[in-house]
Nucleic acid binder design. Sequence first.
DNA 1: GATGAATGAGCTTTCATTCAT
DNA 2: TATGAATGAAAGCTCATTCAT
Lengths: 201, 201, 201, 201
Amino acid sequence: MRALSPMLQKILDAAEQEFGDKGLHGAKILSIAQSAGTSKQLIYHYFESKERLYEIVVSKRVRDCFEQLIAVEMERDEPVAAIGRFLGAFIDYLEQHSENIVLSIDQVLHNGAQMRADRELAATREVMLQRLAVPLAAGQALGLFKPGIDANMVFFLMTAFIVGALSLRPVFAMHDGRISETSPEGLRGLMRQFLLDALRA
Amino acid sequence: MRALSPMLQKILDAAEQEFGDKGLHGAKILSIAQSAGTSKQLIYHYFESKERLYEIVVSKRVRDCFEQLIAVEMERDEPVAAIGRFLGAFIDYLEQHSENIVLSIDQVLHNGAQMRADRELAATREVMLQRLAVPLAAGQALGLFKPGIDANMVFFLMTAFIVGALSLRPVFAMHDGRISETSPEGLRGLMRQFLLDALRA
Amino acid sequence: MRALSPMLQKILDAAEQEFGDKGLHGAKILSIAQSAGTSKQLIYHYFESKERLYEIVVSKRVRDCFEQLIAVEMERDEPVAAIGRFLGAFIDYLEQHSENIVLSIDQVLHNGAQMRADRELAATREVMLQRLAVPLAAGQALGLFKPGIDANMVFFLMTAFIVGALSLRPVFAMHDGRISETSPEGLRGLMRQFLLDALRA
Amino acid sequence: MRALSPMLQKILDAAEQEFGDKGLHGAKILSIAQSAGTSKQLIYHYFESKERLYEIVVSKRVRDCFEQLIAVEMERDEPVAAIGRFLGAFIDYLEQHSENIVLSIDQVLHNGAQMRADRELAATREVMLQRLAVPLAAGQALGLFKPGIDANMVFFLMTAFIVGALSLRPVFAMHDGRISETSPEGLRGLMRQFLLDALRA
DNA sequence: GATGAATGAGCTTTCATTCAT
DNA sequence: TATGAATGAAAGCTCATTCAT
């Protein structure tokens, strides 16, 4: 991974911000250019189209997330604690990177088309899943977790729930103060417990 | 609730479709007009702006969802079965009304601004929550459900998970066939079980 | 001149207001209808088009102005005082009826097309001019006024100056406080003196 | 003042024409684009809005007028002739640039908002007024002109009268042939004399 | 790499006007 | 008189994208 030209880096950062704030449709190439301190034309010099830039940003963000999850230490803990640690890291990551939420969500509106053919991303993902599989299998062997679900499924359940909760929280908050009164700490614990209970045998 | 003029009804239906497919930004007034078999100007005759039409569609969809949930019979079952029935109805509704998914999701990109001041909607919501509270409280009294969570929180958890799962399913399917191989039946059962397990004491 | 149906009268009043505020282009039929408490369709029931309604309003306003001027008592004064009285009445009228100013001005943008064939208006105008001619001729005979100008020309000069001054006053006021500091009283006197001096032999 | 891109120049010329013919509301961006031989989008590339383009055109026209008046030689003449020369130049300019008339007039409908914050224009105006002040003061010292009026007021009176007369001439011509029969020469002389007489002590 | 000029396609919105009842 | 429905035409403006330098 060699260093990118500094302007290219700025463009990518600005695009991450803009797409993460407004989604594919809401983002404007001109805004990205201005945030990056350059012109639209330079963006077109580097990227063939807005869609392509978006794809690249999405892949980059998703890969970054996978890499953070790969870095979670799970070897020393017993299975439930290990999965709990993974979960905590996942929740923290998504809470701190709201762009990923919007980007994930935005995929829904665009059929996930942005992730189609990224081999490297698929590989990273596989590594992450294999690491998650270790404590899961160990826990299942000990009768701590439900049988019949694999790492892929567990990761899907986690993602669905965390992304759903974090993105709908503000919407629910409008209706009803109670959710938003729940401190971030509280919601974090709630999500973690909820998911662990759901996995338990 | 008197009958709407037939063209107005067609416009609302077409708007529901279009917004449900593409979200606020992606939807085009011209498309809605063409689907409804009329002109964009007539839409502006009835609705003051695109945003306002969107708000109305969102409110309508959400209210419809709440009403379906209010109609779920829960009186005859014991608590776990009652909540399970509610859950099943909720999942079915959202699976059959994918517009609601997109609409919910799209709120995230627009700060949920579309639901702010709909008193009637808030009232319907409250009725629904009160019905859900009955078996929940009964179950808690019997030690079947976790203590310390109320109907509002349960509804939030359900929505977050179901919306998250249904919307991310196609995205995950791109990476990995296994989720999509899971038959709709299978996913339905999985979600239901997952949520019930999470609520259990 | 029989009484008009009350709604017709309200429409004309509202049109006067709206055209007088915004000019032909700036005025909206819908606004007029709403101000009059009726619907656009009724306006089209009475008037064949926006342009035609405008013409009628303009004629009405101009006739009203002429009639006010006809009513000015000039018989008892000596010539200079008589013309001064006429002038004062004209200035007062235009100051109190800013619609007339805007309407006159707006004619410029539309080639005065709105006044083409109104016989009755032309007749009223002639009466007014003949009354003005009396003290003018008397003054000229006494060597008080310039020779070689007739009532028509005098009326043109008066109108040009008063309309010009009243309409440009706010524009000049932006550049320079001094004009606007001149009290309405002051401007009134200034205009009157200015015109009388210009007519003097 | 570097040369403008040729297309920009064409756009400005076309805008001057169009706004000068139809005023702010009546002018259409598409017309301007077509007259300039380009597309409306290019106009928006250069100017942020129709209003802004209008402001620029108005400022440009008004500054041009002031500059012409600054260029009038008044040093060699005695006061009355000097003011007469200024007046003649002013009348000629406005007769030859009917756009300025319409533009001035149109200000009335838009509250003169277009001239608010143009420092440079205000400065040019001040220079022009100072030049006009010289023969005025000299004439007042000799008892030739009324005391108690300054250059600003004189300029206001001149503008009001000339703009009023030139713009209302066609309107009056409809009613009455006599004004329009007055040759442009004749009207020019009449206005000049009329204004000089009004200034005289 | 960088920049100014230019364009095509399309969008939301407005408004005078008409028709049927 | 009065009203709801509908339409044609166009307006102002936005944005992704390209080209030439």
